[in-house]
Amino acid sequence: MTLRLESTNASDIASAISAERHRKGATATGMVMTLVIVADEEYQADATQAAASSAGDHPCRILTVIPRPGRGEPQLDAGISVGDSEGPGELVRLRLRNSLAEHPASVVLPLLLSDTPVVAWWPAGHPADLATDPIGRLASRRIVDTTSTDAFVSALIERKAHLATGDTDLSWTRLTPWRAALAATLDQPYEPITEAVVYSEAIPAAPLMRTWLEWRLGVPVTYLDSEGPAINQIILRTTGGAITITRPTGHMATVERNGIAVKELFLPRRSVKDLISEELSRLDPDDTYEETMSRLDITRLEPDNDGAADQDDTAGEQTENTTEGP
């Protein structure tokens, strides 16, 4: 059940949350963080839903800030739900109307849980400089999603220009299963790696993967355009052949070493809920992401080939072998 307060203020909202919690008989809260979501009306519902269901893993106070700029008197409307069907945590939707839309911190600051981390998340569209943004400044971890932007190349350039410790990007989070799978293949003996190829749709994760591989492996990495979905193949070429991971449908992947010993691997594309859960599981700065971003070459954010037409070269054959292989 959602409790609605209209033309209210932060203090009344705080009292209402507290009263609601007592009414439910939950005296100890155990909440470990406040998650502030900043989103327009269009995106807030999905994002809040994803955050609320990931709160099943870890109750937090979710403050969804919905700016509603316009002319007229400033007004704050709130919808509060505590530990119900939407999730076990506390969930407050804050509609900042008219000129109040420009002063979100004045509403959010009094509603932060005391002495616990604050995480800010912009599910779609975000300020250029997160760390100095009024909401971003309150947070120790600032999550954006460059995949959700129309022009991801400029989004990545902007992210790199303003990168601060604590910034993170769901495009990077999406890479974790891929990175884990690649790392696992190198736990076994392999011949010296000479180069690598990333096949992917045009998504921000692809140049991030390229940069990470170049940094870690110290070899040139080519990024070639493909039909996807997302990253669909990565090849590590060695002096004796290749280690190939192919994920044709965005679910199961096959691992191939020197054209033999095909293995299958569960490599699913994950929901936003899972991505947010991963983000919230560690609140310390992600040094690997920061280093990857600082190494990101902004002149090489797009595929090395121009357009999907050139895709089927040697690696295309690899894909075929994999699907028909033993």
Partner: peptide, 27 residues
């Protein structure tokens, strides 16, 4: 070459990279 196999060292793993889970080797 930094990408050559040495037992116990994996260039794609690093203690700073906390997202990567510990995955058991082949067994």
């Amino acid at each position: 070459m930094p990408s050559t196999y040495t037992p116990g060292h994996n260039p794609l793993r690093s203690s700073a990279d906390k997202r990567l889970p510990r995955i058991a080797g082949p067994c």
